[in-house]
Design a protein around this nucleic acid. Structure first.
Length: 579
RNA sequence: UGGGGCGUAGACAAGUGGCAAGUCACCAGAUUUUGGUUCUGGCAUUCGCAGGUUCGAAUCCUGCCGCCCCAACCA
């Protein structure tokens, strides 16, 4: 088996995207796995797992972990389990289970038949606990929560042993059994490991194994009155499933000694825990607690608010799984605390959508244009290319007529330097159509510009002039008679601060929120081909950015989300001119 | 200040004794019927700091400094 030449190797693994297969340097985890496989450890098998607790929605930080765990497994011919770490019925909810499964699948990963729950192992876990008690390695403690806390000591002082530490094995066994049967109130007893109250590692000072919680569990019902703690449940769950490499985040480094201790006591399969740095993204927050707070306070519209870094939020916003995976590949895996600039994520969604999004024209803030020399009542169909990056997707026809809408921002009565859009007396090109010249500005009684009187050059239908004259600007437009009205939601970073989790420690997060994170534009006009667009469809609104149809959208009441704007070098020039 | 980790450009991140990959961001230019895309060039004489070993150090040794994690019956 070990030398089986047909066994899949990293290079032969299908769909390997990173590290092992593409010649990029291996990250430290893949290096360890590669070395283990080469050395024939675990017979060369690789089994990983993604172990979320069903107490919240998945976010892009989880995506990093998912890509790592499923990625490593795929690259080394192994498998990756999806396991719900459901050991705390007080905080968990089956609703979250559904969202997690959906999000992992959406990201593009498949756990096959390997869907597990820590609660599947409750009986075996209990057996391990009994074994520990029998071996004198665990005891039932009647200390109160406060006493336990106090007697644990501090980082510089050793803790104090509980009087119950000396309880007999027989009595411990009896008490544990009665805890399980529900004879005691919550908090009356706990089962603890007997390790070392003076250990320099706080996690080793007689950690809790079971606590009494007389509440039903969403999967085991009222079968249990005690529930296992993370450190105890997690290592044994890994062991039971035959996990070879248990990848987790840095804050569990201190727990590794305990992970190893539990497994060593009962001589079972012993996976290797390896810790890596979690992802932090600039201008947003990643902690479940904070995300929950934003949702519950109504600061955002729910877990799938497009401003959130949740996978459901990113999906609704228009992000593709491919872009998120490419991003996760790029950021790497290391042990250094990090704060990845959100512009890197934005780069990957632009890169992906540039290749696949159909171009359409949409005017967000319409300004009416009347072409005086264009025949009244005439409508002609012009051909427009759907995607210059992908000629395969062909062309479509768009109506052109005497009355159009252009973007208000594309006209300046008094144009600044380097502004080469429309202005009085100036000529520009209308995308896919003719040259257009502004002849006159029409105002209402309040003095606001309500309309532009223009002329067009019929000889410029090709997009350029026959006499060789050039225009510097090309504008998008829609025909007033056939345009469809739409609502457009423009998103910006949720936080002004690059690192709100850090900056908000004292003043609180709310003062750091970006008041302009959502701008709703009503009365936008989009080209008629969009009338039948359905939720989830993505487009490039020419010269604006990438947009996708929101689930709130309905026939006759289109709603678009801006996924990300196009890079905008004009705004930079303009900004430079301002100060 | 007990223990566990980490310090390479604005942000990520390779490199593990032979004389600083790559990506994003940023800057400059070319192309362009999207001020988009694409392309070209620039961007760490220096690797937290200070000593030491060596012909040679980001990589080895010593000391110091800084940041993160651990005192939930959360995970």
């Amino acid at each position: 088996m070990r030398n089986d030449p047909t066994r899949k190797t990293a290079a032969a693994a299908p769909e390997a995207q990173s590290g092992a297969a593409n010649g990029e340097p291996l990250d430290f985890i893949r290096s360890i796995v590669a070395a283990d496989v080469a050395a024939g450890k675990h017979d060369g098998r690789v089994v990983t797992r993604f172990p979320p607790e069903p107490n919240g929605y998945l976010h892009i930080g989880h995506a990093k972990s998912i890509c790592l765990n499923f990625g490593v497994a795929a690259e080394y011919g192994g498998r990756c389990h999806l396991r719900f770490d459901d050991t705390n019925p007080l905080k968990e909810d089956p609703h979250y289970v559904e969202s997690i499964e959906k999000d992992v699948r959406w990201l593009g990963f498949d756990w096959g038949r390997h869907l597990y729950h820590a609660s599947d192992y409750f009986e075996r876990l209990y057996d391990y606990a009994v074994q520990l008690v029998q071996d004198g390695k665990a005891y039932v403690d009647s200390s109160s929560e406060e006493e336990i806390r106090r007697d644990r000591g501090t980082v510089t002082e050793p803790g104090k042993e509980s009087p119950d530490r000396a309880r007999s094995v027989q009595e411990n066994l009896d008490l544990l059994e009665r805890m399980r049967r529900g004879e005691f109130d919550d908090g009356a007893y706990v089962l603890r490991a007997r390790i070392d109250m003076a250990s320099p590692n706080m996690k080793m000072r007689d950690p809790l194994i079971y606590r009494v919680r007389r509440v039903p569990h969403h999967r085991t019902g009222d079968a249990w009155n005690i529930y296992p703690m993370y450190d105890f449940a997690h290592c044994f769950s890994d062991s039971i499933e035959g996990i070879t490499h248990s990848l987790c985040t840095l804050e569990f480094e201190n727990n590794r000694e305990l992970y190893d201790w539990f497994l060593d006591q009962v001589h079972v399969h012993h996976p290797q825990q390896i810790e890596f740095a979690r992802l932090n993204l600039s201008h947003t927050v990643m902690s479940k607690r904070t995300l929950l707070e934003l949702v519950e306070k109504g600061i955002v519209r729910g877990w799938d608010d497009p401003r959130l870094p949740t996978l459901s939020g990113l999906r609704r916003r228009g992000y593709t799984p491919e872009a998120i995976r490419a991003f996760c590949d790029r950021i790497g895996v290391a042990k250094r605390d990090n704060l990845v600039d959100v512009s890197l994520l934005e780069y990957y969604i632009r890169e992906d959508l540039n290749k696949r999004a159909k171009r359409v024209m949409a005017v967000l803030r319409p300004l009416r244009v009347v072409i005086d020399n264009y025949p009244e009542g005439q409508v002609e169909e012009l051909e427009a290319i759907n995607n210059p990056e992908d000629p395969e997707v062909g062309t479509r026809r768009i109506p052109f007529s005497r009355v159009l809408y252009i973007e208000r921002d594309d006209f300046r009565e008094d144009p600044p330097k380097k502004f080469f859009r429309l202005a009085p007396g100036r000529e520009v090109r209308l995308k896919h159509a003719y040259f257009l010249k502004c002849e006159e500005v029409v105002r209402d009684d309040a003095g606001d510009i309500v309309e532009l009187r223009c002329t067009y050059d019929p000889a410029t239908k090709s997009g350029s002039a026959t006499d060789g004259r050039k225009v510097k600007g090309t504008l998008h437009w829609v025909s007033a008679g056939s345009a469809v009205e739409a609502e457009v939601r423009l998103y910006e970073h949720l936080f002004l601060s690059a690192n709100p989790a850090e900056a908000g420690r004292e003043e609180g997060l709310e003062s750091l929120l970006n008041p302009a994170s959502l701008e709703v534009v009503r009365g936008a006009r989009v080209e008629p081909s969009l009338a039948t667009a359905h939720a989830g469809q993505r487009f490039q609104f020419l010269r604006h950015g990438y947009f996708c149809v929101d689930p709130d959208s309905a026939p006759g009441a289109l709603v678009f989300n801006r996924t990300i704007g196009l890079r905008d070098s004009w705004s930079k020039i303009e900004k430079k001119q301002q100060p």
